[in-house]
């Protein structure tokens, strides 16, 4: 299955992936209008320190701890993609605490949010991958 992989070697720390991620969710055509004066809450986040930077988003684990820990069954693994059913989520934060990568975060909608590989938004390549100027985020099949 194709997943999002990041390569720290080419990450510039420009944070553009975060903005493309936030924009992808909004169903808007114009990024300036969508994100003007908005404090974004992206599902991919740049970690950086001492000149090293890389993007972190959901790994879509084979055996996801978040799915195991979810008390309402809101998180499920469908065709390899760990997805969230917003109607079932009760915002208990168990998944946020249990995810070893810190890939799940709170949102403003009363439910948690995580990367779903853009399957619910744009078709094809995830927005962070398309928005990365240096090929540091790729969407590919790996063993």
């Amino acid at each position: 299955m194709k997943r999002v992989y990041v390569n720290e070697k080419w990450c510039l720390g420009c944070h553009l992936c975060e903005y493309h991620c936030a924009f992808a969710d909004m169903n808007e055509k114009d990024m300036a209008r969508a994100l003007k004066n908005v404090k974004i809450k992206p599902k991919i986040k740049i970690e950086e320190r001492d000149g090293v930077s890389f993007a972190v988003s959901c790994r879509h684990c084979q055996e996801p701890l978040c799915v195991k820990g979810c008390i309402t069954g809101a998180l499920t693994r469908v065709d390899g993609v760990v997805t969230i059913n917003r109607d079932k989520c009760v915002n208990c934060y168990t998944c946020i605490l249990i995810c070893p990568y810190g890939a799940i975060s709170s949102s403003d909608d009363g439910v948690v949010q995580k990367c779903e590989l853009c399957i619910k938004t744009v078709v094809g390549t995830p927005a962070c991958v398309r928005g990365c100027p240096n090929g540091a985020i790729v969407f590919e099949e790996r063993q």
């Binding site: 720390g13 420009c14 944070h15 975060e18 903005y19 990024m31 300036a32 003007k36 004066n37």
Partner: peptide, 26 residues
């Protein structure tokens, strides 16, 4: 300024330090 979303990519990418973010006025 109608288009700028203050993502600060310009600031992070300019080695000549042309761009600066003013937190007071965002």
């Amino acid at each position: 300024y109608d288009k700028c979303i203050t993502c600060r990519a310009c600031e992070r990418q300019c080695i000549n330090e042309v761009h600066t973010y003013l937190p007071d006025s965002s």
